[in-house]
C-alpha cells in the first residue's frame, strides 16, 4: 500500500494548540469517559486535531493530545500510526482514496485511477494541485463498487465517465451529491427492487444527507 499521507519528513509546525471552540469540544469528548480513563479519548481528539490542522496531523498536535490526556507521547504515536485515517503528512484540499480491494477492482477501480490521473494529473500516491490520491484497502461499500472516498464522503457506483464528471465538479468548487452516482438508493439492487415489491412503501424523502454511508440500507 503506497500512501502519500504517511510520507515522513514533511515540514512540521513547531507548536499546536486547540482553538477555543475545539478545546470546548475536546473537553466534552474527554468528559464522556469515566474518571481515570481519559486516555480513551485519544482517537476522537486526534481526529479533532487533524480537522483543525487542515486534514493532517502534525507531530506537535500529537504531542499536544498526549499532554492533554497525560499519556506518554509514544502511545499517541502508536495510535496515530496504526490508523490510516490519520494523515501524518499534509494532504491537498481533496484527499481521494480509491478502494482497490477485490470487489471494487473487479468492478473497474483501475478505470477510476485512470480517470483521476487524467483529470487531476495525480497518480496514486501523488499530490497535484488540490488533489492527493491514495489507494486504500476495502472501505466497506462493496455493494456499490467501485467507489472512492473524498475527504469524509463516499462516492459510489462510479465508472470512468462518472468519475471524470465528479472530479470536474469538485474542480469547479461544487459539492456533488454524495453516495451512489447512478441514483440508486442505498445499496438496493442495481436493477431496482427485486423482493417485497407489494409491501414496498412509497419512496421516502432522500436518505439523510451528510454522511455518504451508501451501504447503510
Amino acid at each position: 500500500m503506497t500512501s502519500a499521507a504517511t510520507t515522513e519528513g514533511a515540514a512540521q509546525p513547531e507548536t499546536f494548540a486547540f482553538t477555543a471552540e475545539n478545546l470546548e469540544r475536546a473537553k466534552t469528548i474527554i468528559a464522556r469517559y469515566p474518571q481515570g480513563r481519559q486516555q480513551s479519548a485519544v482517537m476522537p481528539l486526534l481526529d479533532l486535531a487533524q480537522r483543525q490542522s487542515g486534514n493532517w496531523l502534525p507531530r506537535a498536535a500529537m504531542d499536544h493530545v498526549a499532554e492533554m490526556l497525560e499519556m506518554p507521547r509514544i502511545r499517541v504515536y502508536e495510535v496515530a500510526s496504526f490508523y490510516t485515517m490519520y494523515n501524518k503528512a499534509p494532504v491537498a484540499k481533496y484527499l481521494v482514496q480509491i478502494c482497490r480491494t477485490t470487489p471494487c477492482w473487479l468492478c473497474g477501480c483501475n478505470d477510476l485511477a485512470r480517470a483521476v490521473k487524467d483529470v487531476t494529473g495525480a497518480g496514486v500516491g501523488e499530490t497535484v494541485g488540490d488533489f492527493t490520491v491514495m489507494e486504500v484497502e476495502c472501505l466497506g461499500a462493496c455493494v456499490n463498487a467501485p467507489m472512492v472516498q473524498i475527504n469524509d464522503d463516499y462516492y459510489e457506483d462510479l465508472d470512468y465517465d462518472r468519475m471524470v464528471t465528479l472530479l470536474e465538479a469538485l474542480k469547479r468548487g461544487e459539492m456533488p451529491a454524495i453516495g451512489s452516482q447512478t441514483g440508486r438508493r442505498g445499496s438496493e439492487a442495481a436493477s431496482g427492487p427485486t423482493t417485497m415489491l407489494k409491501q414496498r412503501p412509497k419512496p421516502a424523502a432522500p436518505a439523510v444527507a451528510g454522511r455518504g454511508d451508501g451501504d447503510k440500507g
Binding site: 507531530r59 506518554p72 507521547r73 509514544i74 504515536y77 502508536e78 500510526s81 496504526f82 490508523y83
Partner: peptide, 19 residues
C-alpha cells in the same frame, strides 16, 4: 521510560521511538 512503541500496523509494524 515510555519511549519505545510499536508504530504502524500489520506488515508495516515497526518497533522504535517514532521520533
Amino acid at each position: 521510560v515510555e519511549e519505545l512503541g510499536a508504530t504502524g500496523r500489520g506488515e508495516h509494524m515497526e518497533i522504535g521511538t517514532y521520533i
